[in-house]
Design a protein around this nucleic acid. Structure first.
Length: 858
DNA sequence: GCAAGGTC
């Protein structure tokens, strides 16, 4: 029997499609990567009985990058990234082992049906899949017969079956347009990012951003925020005047009227109208009109709308919202949360979905009423052909979802109920008045039926004060009429919800990537999120955008992406050659880049105003090994040490702080050793600022502290302070933190494991000898006479922290250690342990720490 | 260390 491999874009779709095509009779198993499943069933394909294997990838299989040596920022001129630097496709997520997985499943298959999403990215993934599997597939059927593409526009029985019965071929041109987009984004983004980062970071000490990035999506996104900032800055308030009239008729029927001219910008003119109005003490009712109005129920929910509401009403950022939504999805509470579609599929079980919500006390009343009277037909929305709109999938309670999870679920559910509810109906009454020659009016609203606003009360009609019943010809007495002076007010900072709308409108990013871009400009410190999720640009963000405006406004305008995409579209339509379009676009941006580099001083002029030169930043901390003067510690991101005399900058580990370390010096370069610490309770280790960037030994890499240094005799090195193999990770060594007393501890030099031991000991030292049982270095401990925990009042003891029974109660975390050892099956997994032992050249590394531990603790 | 696009 022949086998047909079918591949979808994500595991959830593979499952849905397999269920439809197998009519629910498929068997499922997990693939070797643990992320993808394989669903198998027997069916018919092109007139023969075959075995179907439906599986999926997880988005892109491959991603584009420069070949290794072009990723060295110090050795590569960013200009080379436009043409010289070759690119290669790497596995997008090596952990998933996607190529291997696909090959294992494709081996022995005769046909492949590609069920990737029906957009350009999906078309591109088709070819990534084909590149992986074609070498291992059976060659029995003709090449033309092997590969098929299913084109579907929604995940419904009819659509999926139609697609299966009407298979086509993958579209090479569409895939190529994505290849071109990837290469352009990579080359342009990286070239500009590296250039500006290096240029400005080398010059200013307080930029407070470890990366000064540029990208065709993130930069225009920032542009929107700065544009609003500029409007606020350049806003000049204007004074205007308004006629305000208060009238009454009988008791309790006092009304404030709106002037039909709204406002005037000239005081004299306003005064004239006031005088004209004041000729009468009465307000005549000219007309009374009543109109029934409706407020439409919402369309079905898609991702972007969910993100907008989450930001503006729930105060949850897009990135966070998507994380919560994904959790709700994988737990089965809501449908797939990444969709552009706002139209329910024809066979969508609206009633069934609604019925699940009858038990929830919060909205049971509305739901039951709706089921009783019958649901309303949802409004027509847009079917983008990707996934159904976001809906609840089963009932939930606040307790089981947690705070934010519940708030999002509650919104999604209320939105869903609203889409099948009636519109909100209200009566709008307008009364037109005349006072003297001036016209005024007053509007009142009364609710006819709340409709969907019963479940979305925040959209309910604001009921203004009831307006009196009256008719044409009635007169009211003017209580007060006056000219009021007001000022126009500036716009506020852009809200996140407004930004999402702008990005969507200009085609910046996609539903899946919009949260990423917004997150980027926050993390890079270009904008900060203020109260009410308003986005306020920082000095850095403002200077960058103004700098682009000065040199080449296209770099920041939202049109930059759409212009490129227009060209790319020609590739996908087969109207332009892939190579030519790519070359042409690269040429243009290469010129833009060189122009930008040549004009960088004009952006620099703006930088100078807001930021301080690196030599003027930071506090003197430790001495330079070359000139022996004090270097300055710059705390702003990226934190570093700068020697203004030598004009050298030394990088430091990030996400922590640096302290002085007793004026000790590195024996290799004479630089003063500093102490890095991750926080009060975290780990710390000494490091030499010079060795950190210039590894002194061949077996060391950039970015290593003294706790990884293989110096044979220095008192700070791994060799002197290393105790034994880490209890958690494969490659790390637990190293004594010599300055941690009296709360002594050892910390892994690779992972985050910290082991506390010998609290209040007076001295803790690593001894020369090793443990016979586990090969760990012995530790010599010295306690105070009065408080020693050692047996028989001993003050000193030397032993193995893992094996010595005397130390058993003095080493913390050993229960975690033991659990860990047993959890992992003790020594059973130790086969690969020996891997870097000899190579790292650590003579004190135990042979088999885990086995020793397991034996000891059992 | 960099982009943007998929998705886990």
């Amino acid at each position: 029997m022949r086998t047909v491999l079918m591949v979808a874009e994500k595991p959830s779709l593979a499952q849905s499609i397999a269920k439809i095509l197998s009519k629910g009779s498929c068997t499922s198993r997990k693939g070797l990567n643990g992320a993808c499943s394989v669903h198998e069933y027997t069916g018919s394909f092109q007139g023969q009985t075959v075995r179907f294997k439906m599986t999926s990838v997880c988005g892109h299989v491959m991603s584009l990058d420069f070949i290794g040596k072009y990723n060295n920022w110090d050795k590569v001129d960013p200009a080379e990234l436009f043409s010289k630097a070759p690119t290669e496709k790497k596995e997008a997520n090596p952990k998933l082992n996607m190529v291997k997985f696909l090959q294992v499943e494709a081996k022995g298959c005769d046909y492949v049906v590609l069920w990737l999403d029906c957009d350009k990215e999906g078309e591109n993934i088709c070819f990534e899949v084909l590149d992986a599997i074609q070498p291992v597939m059976n060659k029995g059927v003709g090449k033309d017969q092997t590969v098929h593409r299913a084109k579907f526009s929604s995940i419904t029985d009819t659509d999926i079956w139609n697609a299966m019965n009407c298979l086509g071929k993958p579209n090479r041109n569409e895939a190529l347009s994505v290849d071109a987009r990837q290469e352009l984004d990579l080359r342009i983004g990286c070239a500009f990012t590296r250039f500006q980062t290096k240029y400005f970071q080398g010059k200013y000490g307080n930029l407070d951003s470890s990366l000064i990035s540029f990208g065709p999506c993130q930069t225009p996104t920032l542009g929107f925020c700065v544009e609003r900032h500029d409007k606020i800055q350049s806003f000049k308030p204007e004074t205007y005047w308004v006629l305000q009239a208060k009238v009454f008729k009988g008791k309790d029927n006092s009304l404030t009227l709106d002037w039909n001219r709204v406002r005037v910008f000239d005081r004299e003119v306003g005064q004239m109208f006031l005088n004209l109005a004041k000729t009468s003490r009465e307000a005549q009712v000219e007309s009374v009109s009543k109109k029934e109005k409706t407020k439409q129920r919402p369309q079905a929910l898609n991702t972007v709308e969910m993100l907008r509401v989450a930001s503006s009403a729930l105060g949850m950022g897009p990135q966070h919202t998507m994380q919560i939504a994904e959790r709700l999805y994988t737990q089965g509470y809501i449908s797939y949360p990444r969709t552009e579609t706002t139209h329910y599929p024809e066979n969508f079980d609206l009633k069934g979905t609604l019925k699940q919500q009858t038990s929830n006390p919060v909205w049971a009343e509305e739901v039951n009423a709706l089921l009783l009277t019958g649901i309303n037909r949802p409004r027509k929305g847009n079917d983008a052909g990707d996934h159904p709109p976001i809906t609840p999938m089963r009932a939930a309670t606040e307790g089981e979802l947690g705070s934010d999870g519940w708030r999002l679920y509650e919104y999604i559910t209320r939105h869903f109920i609203a889409t099948v509810s009636q519109d909100c109906k209200y009566l709008q009454t307008t009364i037109d008045f005349v006072i003297g020659t001036e016209a005024f009016s007053c509007i009142g609203k009364t609710l006819i039926s709340p409709g969907y606003t019963a479940v979305m009360p925040w959209q309910g009609i604001a009921l203004e004060e009831a307006i009196p019943v009256c008719e044409r010809g009635d007169t009211f007495t003017v209580d007060e009429i006056k000219l009021v002076e007001r000022q126009t007010s500036p716009p506020d900072y852009l809200t996140e919800a407004e930004l999402i709308t702008l990005m969507e409108k200009h085609g910046i990013g996609t539903d899946a990537s919009i949260p990423v871009h917004i997150n980027n400009i926050c993390q890079r410190n270009y904008v900060t999120v203020e109260n009410g999720r308003k986005l306020k640009p920082t000095n850095l963000g403002i200077v960058l955008v103004h700098g682009y405006y000065k040199t080449d406004a296209e770099l920041v305008l939202p049109t930059i992406r759409s212009a490129v995409e227009k060209q790319l579209n020609l590739i996908s339509l087969g109207k332009a050659n892939y190579q030519q379009v790519l070359q042409h676009a690269l040429d243009i941006f290469k010129r833009k880049f060189h122009y930008f580099v040549d004009s960088i001083t004009s952006m620099d002029e703006l930088m100078e105003v807001s930021f301080s030169p690196i030599a003027a930043t930071g506090k003197p901390l430790s001495r330079c090994g070359k000139c022996h003067r004090f270097m300055k510690y710059i705390q702003a991101k990226p934190s570093r040490l700068h020697c203004s005399h030598c004009d050298e900058t030394y990088s430091l580990p990030q996400n922590g702080a640096i302290k002085l370390n007793k004026e000790l010096r590195c024996p290799l370069d004479d630089f003063e050793i500093v102490l890095w610490t991750s926080g009060a309770r975290g780990k710390s280790y000494p490091l030499c600022p010079y060795c950190f960037s210039n590894p002194p030994f061949r077996d060391m890499k950039k970015g290593m502290g003294c706790n990884e240094c293989t110096h044979p005799s220095c008192q700070h090195s791994l060799n002197s302070l290393g105790i034994g193999q880490c209890v958690e990770c494969d490659s790390g060594v637990l190293v004594l933190d010599p300055l941690s007393g009296p709360k002594w501890r050892m910390a892994c030099n690779k992972c985050n494991v910290v082991v506390h031991f010998f609290e209040h000991a007076h001295k803790v030292q690593v001894a020369q000898d090793s443990c016979d049982a586990c090969d760990a270095s012995l530790v010599a401990v010295d306690f105070n006479k009065t408080s020693t925990p050692l047996p028989a009042g001993e003050t000193q003891h030397t032993g193995c922290v893992f094996c010595d029974p005397v130390f058993q109660d003095l080493v913390e975390l050993k229960h975690a250690t033991m659990r860990h050892a047993m959890h992992r099956g003790g020594g059973a997994r130790r086969g690969g342990r020996g891997r870097g032992r000899g190579r790292r050249g650590n003579p004190k590394k135990p042979k088999d720490k885990m086995a020793a531990l397991a034996a000891y603790f059992v």
